[in-house]
């Protein structure tokens, strides 16, 4: 599985993603600078966390116009898996590749803490190595992670089962206290209609090795790898 990690000016989780693919999964990974226009035959594209363009105007608002984003959009339209983590999720929303928007946390505070999220869909390209309803402990680190969309969009996301991760208590209950940023219906991650573009605020790439305190993020990358390999085997 060849992974392209897109680096924008201000990305700061690109190395974590690169390392998760390269040294933990032992798969090829490559940084691609946002000024480039080609994805170098990648099988998977990762938009990492950080503060692209200093979050000027709105988080992700400028990055979506980077030259590489045209290639990312074509790649996604052709069914290629795109994973947006934190600022990557914000960029996908600004680009209209996922619905809704991520706005200022209700607390107004930047939150850098471990949270619990429940796997709502364990049958996606990105999550089929998890159990349905499994509760993961994954860190968040954001000031603008409050997921917002109009009622119609949210209802549609729920009806179509496109909420993939939700903030919960350690025992899996959805409560207001477990919601770290005020997100509508505790939404932590969503997927597009075609099922190949996932955005989430928590950082799975930060919990892929025991030395990091948890390996709860690993199965996401393993799911991706297994599905990319299965796809390649089908095509061969």
């Amino acid at each position: 599985m060849r992974a392209a990690v897109i680096t924008f000016p201000g990305s700061n989780c690109d190395y974590d993603c690169y390392k998760a693919i390269r040294s933990v999964l032992n798969e090829p990974a490559e940084y691609i600078w946002h000024r480039e226009t080609d994805l170098h035959d990648a099988d998977v594209v990762i938009l990492p966390g950080g503060f692209s363009y200093g979050d000027y105007l709105r988080a992700g608002a400028i990055a979506r116009f980077s030259p590489i984003m045209s290639a990312v959009r074509r790649f996604a339209d052709a069914g290629g898996p795109v994973l947006g983590i934190c600022n990557g999720f914000q960029i996908l929303c600004e680009a209209g590749m996922l619905p809704g928007a991520l706005v200022r946390n209700v607390s107004l505070q930047f939150r850098g803490i471990p949270v619990h999220v429940r796997v709502e869909r364990a049958d996606t390209l990105f999550t089929d190595r998890y159990e349905p309803g499994q509760v993961l402990r994954i860190p968040i680190a954001h000031g603008e992670g409050n997921y917002l969309a109009d009622e119609e969009t949210v209802t549609r996301l729920e009806d179509e089962g496109r909420v993939v991760f939700r903030y919960v208590e350690p025992d899996g209950r959805v409560t207001e206290a477990a919601n770290p940023n005020g997100s509508t219906r505790n939404i932590a991650g969503i997927i597009n209609e075609a099922g190949n573009v996932l955005g989430l605020m928590p950082h799975p790439e930060r919990v892929v090795e025991a030395v990091l305190g948890s390996t709860d993020g690993l199965a996401l990358f393993e799911s991706l790898r297994a599905n990319v390999h299965a796809g390649a085997a089908r095509e061969a």
């Binding site: 105007l57 709105r58 608002a61 929303c93 600004e94 928007a101 706005v103 917002l148 969309a149 109009d150």
Partner: peptide
């Protein structure tokens, strides 16, 4: 296209 986000 840029200055405002129509969602919010």
């Amino acid at each position: 296209k840029l200055l405002a986000n129509p969602v919010t």
